[in-house]
């Protein structure tokens, strides 16, 4: 596993993009020892991404051993990544997560989401915000994607 997933070029690009990171971001990785084809790669990928900026931090969990934490962050699939804000010792969950490896096209979604979470601003329109602010029941959006 010593071979890097990200080459020097990508690492440099990430460092450039992550210049815009404003606040610390905590990436929570959830893996499993059982039947998880992409857990190791996803963890390594996340670790390499997090290593490119001192504003990015990471915690590693096992969905079975840390079932309570997984539930708290609504993680029910592995590999799972939660992108949360970090404020001192506090983790603020914005409900943003990835199920499956964020490779290919989804790698840019991951990078973009890290920047968004770091800015602590959804970028949504005032209308959307006012509707969502009045929500009385949970809304789950699952965006199905393929990496290619």
């Amino acid at each position: 596993m010593s071979e890097k997933l990200l080459n020097d070029d990508i690492v440099q690009q990430l460092k450039d993009v992550f210049q815009q990171l404003q606040n610390p971001v905590e990436v929570l990785f959830f893996g499993s020892k059982k039947d998880c084809e992409y857990c190791d790669d996803t963890r390594q990928l996340a670790e390499e991404v997090v290593a490119t900026s001192d504003k990015l931090h990471m915690q590693v969990y096992d969905i079975d051993e840390h079932a309570e934490i997984a539930r708290q962050y609504h993680v029910d699939k592995v590999p799972g990544l939660v992108l949360a804000a970090r404020d001192g010792d506090r983790i603020i969950d914005y409900g943003v997560r990835f199920a499956g490896i964020p490779s290919g096209h989804e790698f840019s979604s991951l990078v973009h989401d890290l920047v968004l979470v770091s800015g602590r601003d959804s970028g949504l329109s005032p209308q959307t915000r006012s509707f969502l602010a009045d929500l009385k029941e949970p809304v789950l959006l699952q965006v199905f994607v393929t990496p290619t």
Binding site: A99, I101, L132, P138, L141, Q142, V145
Partner: peptide, 21 residues
Amino acid sequence: MVQAEMVEAMEFQELSYRHHV
């Protein structure tokens, strides 16, 4: 109140199938 989950459809085929992706 809002949760947003990116789901890699190839890895979670059963869920994708259930939602007719």
